[in-house]
């Protein structure tokens, strides 16, 4: 069992989240954006697990399970959307999908 202060796993979660965010903002390819979103979701899940460990309660892990469900749904719809965008725009460039510009 871990004996370090829980600050450290929380720091790991924040670091992963920031990396995912950076990925979303940097990458122009839809597939990579989706991957970065997965990273962010995973980081959030990690924070919940830390909380579960801190209090010795199962609720945090339940939340992790729900995040998993969310991630699965998001990937399913996201991938289908990517297929459609690819079909419509013949590219995966996120900046090319700007029909909603003002």
């Amino acid at each position: 069992m871990l004996t370090v202060p829980l600050l450290q796993p929380l720091l790991l979660a924040v670091l992963l989240f920031a990396l995912g965010l950076t990925g979303v903002l940097v990458r122009r390819n839809f597939v990579f954006i989706l991957m970065s979103i997965e990273i962010m979701l995973n980081a959030a899940g990690l924070a919940f697990i830390v909380a579960a460990t801190r209090w010795g309660q199962a609720d945090g892990q339940v939340m992790f399970a729900f995040i998993l469900v969310l991630a699965a749904s998001e990937v399913a719809v996201g991938l289908a959307l990517i297929l459609r965008i690819r079909h419509r725009l013949t590219t995966l460039d996120a900046d090319a999908a700007d029909l909603l510009r003002g």
């Binding site: 069992m1 202060p5 829980l6 830390v50 579960a52 460990t53 801190r54 199962a58």
Partner: peptide
């Protein structure tokens, strides 16, 4: 203080 892990096993 983020605290330390509780000893309870989940």
């Amino acid at each position: 203080d983020a605290g330390v892990p509780s000893l309870a096993v989940i």
